[in-house]
Simulated scan of single mutants.
Amino acid sequence: MSSPAAALNRPATVHLHGSLAEPLRLTVAELRELPSHRIEVSFDCLGSGVQRHGFEGPKLWDVLRTARPQIDFTGRKQRLGLLLTVTGADGHRAVLSWAEIDPDFGGQQILLATSIDGAPLDRTGPQLVVPSDHCGARYISGITEVWVGPLA
């Protein structure tokens, strides 16, 4: 059995699961190995007002493609019923549609950020960054899992 102190020193991981070839766990360091993008954003945080930050990390699209989604990419309509659920360590959860990140549709540059304002997120976990959102509610910190699957 590991000690609580050892758990604090372990790098955070993101569990990718659902309609994938097999579940996958990635650390922030492993996410950093994917093509990285930098974006400056501002969003309104209900508790602390307007926030301005620079984030860097891979696009959620690239992360999920690495996890080999079990999706038929030859057609388009079947992809419209796919959802993504992103969960943070505090239980905060947001739902996105596959079409938001798919280049054939919205193609948004949604990131799983590996750093904020130059500070690495290796211990706390990546952050979801949705640049098109004016409200910061989907800017989930400390992401622990991303699920992808069909609308039931």
Rank of each mutant, 00 (worst) to 15 (best):
D117G: 07
A94M: 11
D133R: 12
G75F: 00
T114Y: 03
L84R: 07
L64C: 08
Q109G: 12
D72W: 04
F105N: 03
Q78D: 15
P103K: 05
D117C: 08
T74V: 10
R123Q: 14
H92M: 04
A67I: 01
F55R: 00
R79Q: 09
P103G: 02
D72M: 06
I101P: 02
T144P: 09
G88R: 04
I116S: 15
R79T: 04
G81S: 12
T85W: 08
P120I: 03
I143F: 08
G47M: 10
R123D: 15
S48Y: 11
A113Q: 04
S97G: 15
V86Q: 05
L82Q: 04
G57N: 05
C135M: 11
R65T: 09
G125N: 03
A89W: 01
L84G: 05
G81A: 10
S97N: 15
R93I: 00
Q78K: 08
A89Y: 06
T114E: 01
L84I: 15
L83E: 13
T66H: 15
T124R: 14
T114W: 01
D62Y: 05
P69F: 09
E100I: 00
R123T: 14
L111F: 04
P120A: 09
D102Q: 06
D117N: 13
V130W: 01
D102K: 03
G125I: 01
I116Q: 15
K77A: 11
H134N: 09
H92D: 13
Q51V: 15
F105G: 01
T74W: 08
G118E: 07
S97D: 14
Y139W: 10
R123E: 13
W61M: 04
R138H: 07
G107V: 02
S141Y: 06
S48N: 10
Q108F: 09
L121A: 04
C135E: 13
A113D: 04
P126G: 08
Q127G: 08
V129Y: 09
A113S: 07
V63Y: 05
R93S: 15
E56C: 12
I110F: 07
H92L: 08
R123K: 13
L64E: 03
S48C: 14
R68G: 08
L128G: 06
L111V: 04
V50E: 14
P131Q: 01
E56A: 12
A89D: 13
W98S: 07
E56K: 11
G75I: 00
G88E: 08
G57C: 06
